[in-house]
Every structure is written in C-alpha cells, then in structure tokens.
C-alpha cells in the first residue's frame, strides 16, 4: 500500500446496514423502503479493495452495521497534512452537502461532499463507479434489473495545515462505507 494513502478506521461510527444477503434481504435497510445492496456482488467484508488506485478497507458484510448514515458524526484522523479524503459512498437520491474539515490550529473549512444516487443512476458528480450489484434487495425479494451502485468520491483538503478530523454532514441521505486519506506529498 502506498504510504500516501491511509484507510481510516470508521468502525465506531457505523450506524446503518446497507448490505444484505440474498437469503435475508430484510436485514438491510439502506433507504426508507428497506432496499439494500446485494452482498454476493460486493467484496468480502473487512477486505482491502482498490478503486482507481485508492485502497479502502471494505466494511464488514452481513455482520451488522456496514456504513455511516451521515448525522453530523465527527471522525478523528491521524493529525497531518492531506490533499484528499476519499470515500466509498452512496446516497438515497442524488445529493450534495458540506463536510467540515477541522484542523489542528483550530481552523475549520467547509468542503463539498457530492454523492450520486445508489438506485440505477449515473455518476452525476463524476464519481468512479466502485461497485455495482446487478440486482436490488427488497425486504421480501431480490429484484432483477435494478442495479445498486456504490461510488468512489473524494473531498478536497484545501488548507495547508494539519487536519485533525472531519465532521460529516447532518444529512441522512448520504452514506459512507469507507474512508481513506491521501497525504500531501513531501514538498507540496
């Protein structure tokens, strides 16, 4: 793994189950209708996956909460200089909101987090399609021909200061499955 790219441990913040097994579709409820991603088409739980060269620690699968439904959680990070916060994310409908970057010197900047719909949608914000399940899980059945998409998106860290943490938006439409920090290259 590149020393510039560091997956962040978000285990303590996971509060939603968005992935389910075909044998127990009701266990997942990514959205208000109880739809969820199909586990059989996604990476193994806790595995290290690479999307467009960025390593992510994929969440546990079918073992409880697997993503953060954004509600203003504060995610601490190893204090340091970063250029990007990469996320594996999906939204209940196309959505954009603000992340608050908290720096060690006390400054706070808002940066946009833009995430396309997980429901049979295009990458409206130019994200990379990280994973796509060809079926959608409903509480009582597996629906063919309705894909669910997980996106790889990134948020800029614009301030040339040490980042200490970030506060996710208070927006339950946005779900974060994994997060990876990209350090600033020496001399940049």
């Amino acid at each position: 793994m590149s020393v510039l790219l560091e997956p962040v441990d978000i285990a303590g913040h996971r509060n939603n189950t968005g992935i389910s097994a075909a044998t127990e579709t009701k266990a997942g409820a990514f959205n208000v209708w109880g739809n969820s991603f199909a586990a059989e088409y996604l990476p193994e739980g806790d595995s290290l996956v690479h999307v467009a060269g960025v390593p992510f620690r994929f969440p546990p699968v079918c073992e409880g909460p697997d993503n953060i439904r954004c509600a203003g959680q504060f995610v601490r990070v190893p204090e340091g200089r970063y250029d990007w916060v990469h996320v594996l994310a999906a939204a209940e409908r196309r959505c954009e909101d603000l992340v608050e970057m908290n720096y060690g010197d006390g400054s706070v900047d808002q940066e946009p987090l833009r995430v396309s719909d997980f429901w049979a949608a295009p990458a409206w914000f130019g994200e990379v399609k990280a994973f796509e399940t060809p079926v959608m899980h409903y509480p009582h059945h597996v629906q063919q021909r309705v894909p669910a998409v997980m996106w790889a998106q990134r948020v800029p860290v614009t301030r040339r200061a040490d980042l200490a943490g970030l506060r996710l938006p208070r927006n339950v439409a946005v779900h974060v499955f994994a997060m990876t920090l990209q350090r600033t290259e020496a001399g940049a």
């Binding site: 208000v32 939204a91 209940e92 409908r93 196309r94 959505c95 954009e96 909101d97 833009r114 208070r170 927006n171 339950v172 439409a173």
Partner: peptide
C-alpha cells in the same frame, strides 16, 4: 441543480423522520 440536490436532504430527512415528526423538526 443545487436546488434539486438540496431537496434530497429535506425529503429524505422527512421520510426517515415519519415515525416522530417532532424529533425530526430541527433537522
């Protein structure tokens, strides 16, 4: 389009808050 995207936050917050409108009021 930013208007359309901001509708997502309001509509989805409302959808998830249906069980307790009072608790959802601030959001």
């Amino acid at each position: 389009e930013s208007v359309a995207h901001a509708w997502t936050g309001l509509r989805i917050t409302g959808a998830h808050g249906l069980g307790d409108a009072q608790a959802a009021a601030a959001d």
